[in-house]
């Protein structure tokens, strides 16, 4: 009598582990990411050691090194800035206006913006900085 060895079946690979990993990655990126509109140009904010944590939301005005302006990620002509920002402030008078200027932008491009935002009724205007890791070189 011939005895045949039973065929060993490969157990099906479980996809539960894959789901777990993907789910953890999803939660990780949701928690550490910030859903901000990115500027259409390169903006490297100045560094500061005493900045406070910035809450999400609000209106973001980005200023490039050359003085170009973007509101919530959309490039805006400097002369049309008031018309763009005014409705946004009218929608929410308590909205935080964040001025995200490049660290090498000349102040003549930035400081008038603060005054204009204040004149438009913005009650909280902040300058965006990044936490300092080493003393700034000057």
């Amino acid at each position: 009598m011939k005895l045949s060895r039973p065929v060993t079946r490969q157990p099906p690979e479980t996809i539960v582990a894959l789901i777990d990993v993907v789910f953890f990655l999803l939660v990780f990126f949701m928690l550490i990411g910030r859903m901000d509109a990115t500027a259409p140009f390169d903006v490297a904010p100045p560094t500061a050691a005493t900045g406070a944590n910035m809450p999400a939301g609000g209106i973001t005005i980005s200023v490039s090194e050359g003085g170009n302006i973007a509101v919530d990620g959309v490039l805006v002509d400097r002369n049309a800035l008031d018309d763009t920002v005014k409705p946004l402030i009218a929608q929410d008078a308590n909205a935080l206006v964040r001025i995200n200027a490049h660290r090498e932008t000349e102040l003549r491009h930035v400081l008038p913006l603060v005054n204009r935002m204040e004149a438009l009724g913005a009650q909280d205007v902040v300058l965006v900085v990044t936490p300092e890791t080493s003393p700034p070189s000057q």
Partner: peptide, 28 residues
């Protein structure tokens, strides 16, 4: 799994990971 992967790619691509702080310029 398809939906989760799409969400994962979405958050990876659209999020920014800069640590940003703020200095008040105009306060209420």
């Amino acid at each position: 799994i398809d939906v989760m992967l799409i969400l994962l790619v979405f958050f990876m691509v659209t999020s920014t990971y800069l640590n940003l702080d703020m200095i008040p310029a105009v306060e209420r």
